[in-house]
Design a binder for these strands. Structure first.
Length: 198
DNA sequence: GTCGAGATTATCT
DNA sequence: GATAATCTCGACC
């Protein structure tokens, strides 16, 4: 049973509680080890900063749903929508560890050499779980997708969000949560200033 | 093993 | 036409 009332809390409170949670999609189950909180209008790094649109409409919807979006063409990222209806807020799933369905995950992520690389990273996590755009807006308590919150809150650490470049310096907000000691958590990587083509 | 640059497509202005 | 919350691959120590 999914506690929707708890998911209606702000993303900052929901994010640490998702650490250690189990997310099952079909036959693959992962344990979330790294997340990132994103708010709406007050967060320059959020997609909902400029207001609702086609892509982020799910973020303004009811909590307990899955929000997927495309980034850089090939990659898909998954978020857990929280906050009440009408408030844009979501928790980005950055890293996880595959605990069940390793065989299926390995086939999907054939390029990964170690099992810890299977779901290390937002896009990899979606590939390992088989999440695509059609899963956007899916209920997290449905048959295909199910989120299981941990009974006890796990130990976590916070830090600045990486890879978030933008005017106003959104790195002020230490809304990145991870479980220390987990090999599937990517270490701190400075924001790579991507060069645009010629 | 670590670092640095390129690639690629849906969505929005 | 510009942007984006990234990943993969190649080169070098």
């Amino acid at each position: 049973m999914l506690d929707r009332d708890f998911l209606a809390s702000p993303a900052i409170e929901v994010a640490p509680a998702l650490l250690g949670a189990l997310l099952r999609v079909d036959e693959v189950t992962v344990r979330i080890t790294e997340v990132e909180a994103y708010l709406g209008e007050t967060d320059p790094g959020s997609h909902a900063y400029r207001g609702p649109g086609r892509r982020n409409a799910v973020m303004f919807g009811p909590p307990g749903h899955l929000y997927t979006y495309f980034t850089y063409g090939m990659h898909v990222c998954a978020n857990v929508v929280c906050s009440p209806l009408g408030v844009a807020s979501a928790v980005l799933l950055r890293g996880a560890e595959v605990v069940e369905g390793l065989d299926v995950a390995r086939v999907r992520r054939a390029t990964s050499r170690s099992d810890e690389d299977l779901a290390r990273g937002p896009a990899r996590l979606c590939v390992a779980l088989g999440i695509s755009l059609v899963d956007g807006g899916a209920d997290l308590d449905g048959n295909r997708v199910r989120l299981i919150l941990p009974t006890h809150s796990a130990a976590f650490e916070t830090g600045p969000r990486t890879g978030v470049s933008g005017p106003g310096g959104s790195s002020e907000y230490p809304w990145r949560f991870w479980m220390p000691g987990e090999p599937s958590v990517s270490p701190y990587r400075p924001a790579t200033a991507r060069k645009r083509g010629p």
